[in-house]
């Protein structure tokens, strides 16, 4: 059963796309991640032009993040002021990212840079997560106390100027690292098609020392607006958002996420993190192989939009 994607300009198997969306949705529900960093590489493996995969990935993250964002908003488990600062950085970063995207595409290096960024990020994040979860699994086996956050400890980030009081987080913190973090995530959203939660959440906890109870809500607040903004800008500058592809991924994704959520609640944290780490590493290795393996055709022809 095939369906024609009007923007990617190719026919795909509808069941493969739904399966992909459902599986990534399931995993994102189970591990509490947005799933953009899995969707985009999978689409590239399935021969969707990387430009379309990235833009559509950003659009898909909007759908997978909204329900979580609404929940946190209702419960008030977010720091609106901190979120707004992150968002300012995020919108600036997304705008810069689109310029980078357009420039790389003109140079013919967009596909390469997207793959390289994924290899670097998936490799390092996956590696770190695996190391951390294995260590904490060992510790629990040895019956030792696990503490993720050491309160009261300060680092160089807390000596920067332009400090601002964030009441909800009970923090007196410089806005510079907040805006810089938001900016970097914004660039990643537009160049890689990810929400960026997998980098933002650890950075907020370990670097900015933001209390864990507001971290998820605040990062989702930033992600929703930045991915929505990126979707619109990608649609207007690169015409690369495929609404048919995105719609299929979203529908399968949000349903898969509900089941993943239930399974995730029954599993233990370290095991979940180790599982996710292995998955992230596997996707990264597959992408790295694609860069190293000799291509079947070293020439490529570009006519108009995305080539073939």
């Amino acid at each position: 059963m095939t369906i024609y994607l009007p923007i990617a300009e190719l026919s795909v198997n509808i069941l493969v796309i739904l399966g992909m969306g459902g599986a990534v949705g399931f995993l994102s529900g189970m591990f509490g991640v947005g799933g953009g960093f899995l969707i985009t590489p999978l689409l590239i493996f399935y021969n969707i032009p990387p430009a379309v995969a990235v833009a559509t990935g950003a659009n898909q993250v909007v759908a997978s993040s909204i329900s979580g964002a609404l929940t946190h908003f209702r419960r008030g488990t977010l720091d609106l002021k901190l979120g707004t600062m992150l968002l300012i950085g995020g919108l600036l970063g997304a705008s810069a990212g689109i310029q980078i995207f357009v420039y790389l595409r003109k140079l013919g290096q967009l596909d390469l840079i997207i793959s390289l960024l994924y290899v670097v990020f998936l490799g390092s994040i996956g590696g770190l997560m695996l190391w951390e979860s294995v260590r904490s699994m060992r510790r629990t086996a040895a019956n030792k106390q696990v503490s993720l956050r050491k309160p009261g400890q300060h680092n160089w980030v807390h000596r920067l100027p332009l400090k601002m009081r964030f009441k909800r987080s009970k923090l007196y913190l410089s806005v510079i690292p907040v805006i810089v973090l938001g900016f970097c995530i914004g660039v990643l959203t537009s160049v890689m098609g990810v929400g960026g939660g997998f980098i933002m959440v650890p950075a907020m906890i370990y670097l900015l020392r933001i209390p864990t109870n507001v971290v998820i809500g605040t990062s989702l607040f930033q992600i929703i607006f930045v991915t929505a903004f990126t979707t619109i800008v990608q649609a207007t500058t690169n015409y690369s958002v495929d609404i048919v592809l995105g719609g299929l991924l979203m529908i399968a994704g949000v349903i898969g996420a509900q089941y993943g959520l239930r399974v995730g609640q029954k599993m233990r944290g370290e095991q979940l993190r180790a599982g996710l780490a292995l998955l992230v590493l596997a996707v990264g290795i597959r992408l790295a192989y694609g860069l190293i393996a000799p291509p079947a055709e070293i020439y490529s022809v570009i006519t108009g939009s995305f080539g073939y």
């Binding site: 659009n59 909007v62 979203m250 949000v254």
Partner: peptide, 14 residues
């Protein structure tokens, strides 16, 4: 429209 579709899909599911 793409963004609205995403918002509605995600919200409906929840």
């Amino acid at each position: 429209v793409s963004v609205l579709l995403a918002l509605v899909t995600g919200w409906l599911a929840s």
